[in-house]
């Protein structure tokens, strides 16, 4: 099975690492997709990932064709939003670097939040995509490590493997 990752780094910094880390490709924020915020609301043909922080922006963004995934943030998604996500088939992106690169005290909260999100998404049948979204070299990890984190979040075996392949289909 082919695994994919998404990093918030320059393409040149991750290109040499992708095969070694067990990925078919590491996509980069900026070149392959961009985070949608108030500054880039116009549809310019570029693939966008929307954060779930603002319910209004999320509701509008889900209807757009250029939005390929929803990234989890501070807020937990409501049941209705998860149902909509399931209907349109857009994946919920779980950023792993937020857990692994957090300080010791924050890590527990981030883990608990991510685990809850994964559980809710699985209950509603929403596709999940795991991505490192690493901003620094230290936060990048191998596919083997991502699968381990997936297991920690409640995604076992084949389910965890599927989540690492989702980005290849949408980006």
């Amino acid at each position: 099975m082919a695994y994919f990752d998404l990093a918030a780094m320059q393409e040149s910094a991750v290109k040499s690492l992708e095969k070694r880390l067990g990925f078919k490709r590491i996509f980069c924020l900026g070149s392959d997709a961009e985070l949608m915020d108030n500054t880039n609301l116009q549809q310019d043909g570029r693939r966008k990932i929307i954060k779930d922080d603002s319910p209004e922006m999320l509701a509008g963004g889900l209807k757009r064709n250029d939005v390929v995934a929803v990234m989890t943030g501070e807020r937990s998604l409501s049941g209705k939003e998860l149902e909509t996500l399931k209907e349109i088939g857009k994946p919920l992106l779980i950023p792993i670097a937020r857990i692994t690169c957090a300080s010791e005290s924050e890590r527990k909260n981030e883990l608990r939040r991510a685990k809850g999100t994964v559980r809710e998404a699985m209950l509603h049948g929403v596709p999940i995509a795991l991505a490192s979204l690493a901003e620094r070299q230290e936060c990048l990890m191998s596919a083997q490590q991502m699968l381990g984190i997936g297991g920690l979040l409640g995604l076992e075996g084949a389910a965890a493997q599927r989540t690492l392949g989702v980005l290849g289909d949408v980006l």
Partner: peptide
């Protein structure tokens, strides 16, 4: 995966 600091150094360890 969770080792991010060794001594004073920021570090990332990846299992190959």
């Amino acid at each position: 995966t969770f080792v991010k600091k060794l001594g004073e150094k920021q570090i990332g360890l990846r299992t190959i």
